[in-house]
Design a protein around this nucleic acid. Structure first.
Ligand code: MN
Ligand code: MN
Ligand code: ZN
Ligand code: ZN
Lengths: 148, 148
DNA sequence: AAGATTGATGCAAATCGTTTGCATTTAACT
DNA sequence: AGTTAAATGCAAACGATTTGCATCAATCTT
């Protein structure tokens, strides 16, 4: 999905809800999709401020929450600063399905990956425990290829 | 590892560091190992308060941090209240190695499990990406057998 | 056993990321 | 252009955790 398409989708959803497409929402959305990796609210805030210096951090949060509730971004937490929420635009290669993350302890880069084996892990647990597994969060930590 | 043994180990480590084994530390440690699941700081606080009503929450935190730094408990976060830290006493069946968690969305129970397949998931990612994987956090979410 | 030493405690205040209430602005409808 | 209510900016509140500091008490010294 191209960024432009994403914006159109968002416009559509906003209208469908009787909402309004404001300049702030547009700018935040652009900053989000332009951002590599998984930015925090204040990374987006800093980025957006360069375009519109009068924008407020609470607007950034409100917009991100709205995007989250409407399935455009997913919230993520990683063990090192587990307290700071990160936002994962569901617009890249991994749009639709689940995907997983590797975080480099040296450069903090996050690498996304998919892994069919994980479905088997879930299936094995379901069978063993009798539970129904609905979603899975997997984060690997280590040192990325570049940092070795 | 039996709770009593754990306490001895802690005493040993405390002394080795020139620290002091206080009544508070003992009570907190007992509350922690007695607690099923993965308690939060204020669950432990509440539990400890019944034994020693004059104990302070900051003492609970300081003790938990010390236990964490010394490898007696591991910090955990789960997606629903991701902001509240939970403490995992490394004293049960899964003491030494990594283990993983399933969290029931209905009763919030946490089930621990181990899964050899996960080593393969890591190996596959290492090979594909050139990264070195040092640890993995996997949490499954769904509905447990009891709640279905 | 009493005193000295200093690590740990209790308390209150600070911190930090995020949320909320409210007066004001403004997008979208008429 | 005028009306309506959704969204904004601002400041204050929030909740979990941390910190500074005076006091207490576990362990060491005598
Ligand atoms: Mn991602
Ligand atoms: Mn556990
Ligand atoms: Zn790296
Ligand atoms: Zn359940």
């Amino acid at each position: 999905m191209k960024p432009a398409l994403l914006i159109n989708q968002v416009v559509q959803k906003v209208r469908a809800e009787g909402g309004r497409m404001t300049a702030q929402r547009r700018v935040i959305l652009e900053a989000l999709v332009a951002h590599p990796g998984h930015p925090t609210a204040d990374e987006i805030f800093a980025s957006v401020r360069r375009v519109d210096p009068s924008i407020n951090l609470s607007t950034v949060y409100r917009t991100l929450r709205w995007l989250e509730e409407n399935g455009f971004v997913a919230p993520r937490w990683f063990e090192d600063d587990h307290r700071r929420e990160r936002f994962d635009p569901l617009t890249g290669t991994h749009t639709s399905g689940e995907h997983f993350h590797f975080r480099c302890r040296v450069c903090n880069r996050i690498i996304e990956f998919d892994e069919p084996l994980l479905a088997e892990v879930c299936a094995a647990f379901e069978q063993r425990s009798g539970a129904r597994v609905e979603s899975a969060a997997l984060v690997l930590y280590g040192v990325c290829a570049r940092c070795r």
